Simulated assay, not measured.
Amino acid sequence: MSNSEPYLVPTADVIFEEEIKKSRFITYLAHTPNIEAAKQFVQQIKERHHDARHNCWAFVAGRPTDSMKWGFSDDGEPSGTAGKPILAQLTGSGVGEITAVVTRYYGGIRLGTGGLVKAYGGGVQQALTRLETKQKVITSELQLSCEYNQVSLVESLLSEYNGTQLHADYGNQVTMQIELDSRIVDEFCAKLTNRSGGRIVAASAS
């Protein structure tokens, strides 16, 4: 999947709760667009459940396939029994910009490593079935300059490609900043150059 391809993100938080052998497991899912937001959400749940034995978590804080933005923690549970199973469910869902925190109130009965993996992974799996998502379209910002009599040409092409004019400066020439679906930038730029006889060239605004 290229970096211009859309991906799914959550549209609302989810809470799923269950009891397993007297231990209470509460799974929280939230939309977290970056690592900082993910860590803030984890901290928020830890503060809400400061009296819980464990607040285990994992996040995919960007594109689902971008492992540089993954993170997880067992928060005191045996290594590999909580954070990794939670992360496995998130990465398997194909949803990006998502954080899961699973709070456990210990009930006095040990679950064993297999039981813990099943409890933490299963809670997230159940919560994901309740998750509502939307497609996040990746956009690019471009800048171009044109003559006043070429503005209608640019606006017509923007409309054709469902682009947005973000800003315009009217000086000796008109300088515009526009936004487009990243997947069609090359096609848009080629058509703009062709229709203007090579007089208008759009370039990345970054």
Rank of each mutant, 00 (worst) to 15 (best):
Q44G: 01
Q126E: 13
T11P: 03
Q165S: 07
R183W: 04
S4T: 13
Q43R: 14
G114K: 02
L116V: 00
A38D: 06
E36F: 05
L192S: 02
A82D: 01
G76Y: 08
L29Y: 04
N194V: 05
I20P: 10
L144T: 03
T133V: 15
L157C: 10
R24P: 02
Y28P: 04
E5A: 15
G122Q: 15
G121L: 13
D169A: 07
D169F: 01
R110L: 15
N194R: 14
I86C: 06
T81F: 10
Y105C: 13
G163H: 09
F72I: 05
V9L: 10
T164G: 02
V151D: 00
A168P: 08
T129P: 01
E17I: 05
K118M: 14
G76T: 09
G163A: 07
I86R: 09
K39I: 03
I178F: 01
S206Q: 04
T11W: 09
T133G: 11
P85S: 08
T81H: 06
I15E: 13
K69M: 12
P6M: 14
T103F: 13
T175C: 02
I98Q: 04
G80L: 04
E36S: 15
E160Q: 15
S204M: 04
L87P: 14
G122H: 13
L116A: 03
F41C: 04
R183I: 03
S4H: 11
T193M: 05
A205M: 02
V154R: 01
H50E: 10
A61P: 11
I20A: 12
A88M: 08
T133E: 06
G115E: 01
E18R: 15
I26Y: 02
G115C: 05
S140Y: 02
R53F: 07
V101W: 00
E187H: 10
A37K: 13
Y105A: 13
R53W: 13
V101I: 14
N162V: 05
D181C: 09
G198E: 11
G62H: 05
K118R: 15
C189R: 08
A205F: 03
T32Y: 08
I109R: 00
S182A: 15
K39E: 14
